[in-house]
Design a protein around this nucleic acid. Structure first.
Lengths: 114, 114
DNA sequence: CAGCATCCGTGTGGATACTG
DNA sequence: CAGTATCCACACGGATGCTG
């Protein structure tokens, strides 16, 4: 019988969905993507304020992971005080678009059972 | 400044996406949804074989959670040997449809960087 | 301001064995 | 066959303090 994932191959997923889950898997990642979608350029402290409850460590590590996955771009300006701006890459924009139906599903389901 | 989530309210998420993430958050859940989408009715052992690496405990708990979230339906037949069949609910079908763009995103991105 | 270093608690998931 | 029952490991996220 065919299987849905292929153990032994690092990224050999047949249906592809869990590859995406690896990118957005993380407590705050989809909210970060959303924040960077609403406004294309955000600073570290700004993102922190947008996500009450997130700690600096987790915010930093999430941003680094999203950057490593090629969906977030980090631009550091050589100034004092330091300024760093985060934005979505092209791939990140596409990912966010791909996330919209999921958000719509959640909204629609809540409107049915409030 | 407005925030993306509203701490203090259990399900008061503004953008809705992380509500969906709570449903599909789990190591194998999207694969389960996918399996039940490919073929509408699956048995426990069948699902276990489709997901090499999953343990019985995790499979059972994931199925129970998906059932509690109203996306999976469990039908138990009173037979010997026991037979239980799992299928997607209407809501589960819609969830799976909402997941397709995400899978497409992952596939498209892999085709660009193999 | 934008982080990193360190330590730590919890929960999710996993291994194994057993049952109706 | 379709699960429970235990026990356990470790990754993830969190709290706190310090730095360029």
């Amino acid at each position: 019988m065919a299987t849905l994932n292929r153990p032994g191959t690092a990224e050999g997923h047949v249906c592809g969905i869990d590859t995406a889950m690896e990118v957005i898997g993380g407590r705050w990642k989809v909210l970060l993507l959303w924040a960077l979608h609403e406004q294309p350029c955000r600073r570290f402290g700004e993102l922190r304020r947008l996500l009450p409850g997130i700690t600096e460590k987790v915010l930093a590590s999430h941003l680094r992971e999203l950057e490593a996955d090629g969906v977030v771009r980090r631009v550091s300006y050589d100034e004092v005080p330091p300024r760093v701006e985060y934005s979505l890459t092209e791939d990140g924009l596409r990912l966010n678009d791909a996330l919209q139906p999921l958000a719509a599903w959640a909204r629609e389901r809540r409107s049915r059972q409030p």
